[in-house]
């Protein structure tokens, strides 16, 4: 796999074709010193991952470590982005290769890993499980084995922190799309994960809710790995991967990744 940390395209020249790329030079991200400096990461490593579904190659021979506080994943529809992030908490298991999160591999300890890896899905409506907001946030805590009084405290605290305490007693189906996505985030945050994966979290939101949600992602104390079509989100990220045709086509700083993706898409 070709890994590009720094891939500057000189103005006025076309980016080189994939085959023409030179060996990459890895460079530490300068952004890590910003607001996300306090973030500790569990250490995620994918080793020679291949995923097949119904005889089709979805992801092919991917080896990558994901240790930056803010990582974006972009790419065309059907390239394998969703599958890639589902590998990280064992929702998808690889046909070959291993996924390691901290000291565990998803093949052996997916349930343990899911305590550390929270997941916010694209469609907020389908990830809210319980008829009442409070019960929904409590659901994950119950799975962690917390006592009722502890759950109650944790639910209130999380809703308070996200500024949505007023939603606690609402019925899930009466929430707007933006409110639903905030509740989904609250449900994940309440479980105190070390990493939160977002799979196109703002796709179904209007501009205002999108901006608010982006702010929440940027302010998280956890590592965040964000699949998105919303390229503006990535501006302050530490690293962005571009997934094309089941491979990591580009890996580097946000600006360069977006340039690569724009050029790739225009072809």
């Amino acid at each position: 796999m070709i890994k590009y940390a720094q891939w500057n395209v000189p103005e006025g020249t076309d980016p080189p074709l994939l085959a023409d790329r030179k060996e990459p030079t890895m460079q530490a991200s300068p952004k890590a010193a910003g607001q996300t400096s306090s973030v500790t990461v569990p250490g995620i490593h994918l080793e020679k991952i291949t995923v097949l579904r119904a005889g089709k190659v979805i992801l092919e021979d991917i080896t990558v470590s994901l240790n930056e506080p803010r990582i974006g994943i972009i790419g065309p529809n059907g390239a394998g982005k969703s599958t890639l992030v589902r590998l990280l908490n064992g929702l998808v298991l690889p046909n070959s290769g291993t996924v390691q999160v901290g000291n565990f591999t998803t093949a052996r300890a997916a349930k343990r890993i899911r305590r550390d890896v929270g997941f916010v899905f694209q469609n907020p409506a389908n990830q809210i499980i319980m008829p009442l907001v409070r019960d929904d946030i409590s659901f994950g805590l119950k799975n962690l084995g917390l006592a009722a009084s502890e759950r109650l405290r944790k639910v209130d605290q999380t809703l308070e922190e996200l500024g949505i305490a007023h939603l606690a007693e609402r019925e899930s189906h009466t929430l707007s799309g933006g409110e639903q996505q905030m509740v989904a985030l609250a449900a994940v945050l309440a479980m105190d994960p070390r990493v939160i994966i977002f799979d196109e979290p703002t796709t179904m939101l209007d501009l205002r809710n999108r901006l608010r949600f982006q702010k929440e992602i940027n302010g998280l104390n956890q590592q965040a790995i964000v699949v998105t079509h919303d390229l503006e989100v990535l501006e302050d990220f530490d690293r962005v991967l571009v997934v094309t045709d089941g491979r990591i086509g580009f890996d580097g700083a946000p600006g360069d990744a977006v340039d690569f993706y724009r050029h790739w898409s225009a072809q």
Partner: peptide, 11 residues
């Protein structure tokens, strides 16, 4: 098309 087929996987 990006939602992977579940069931065969770790779910």
């Amino acid at each position: 098309p990006e939602i992977p087929v579940t069931g065969a996987a770790g779910t």
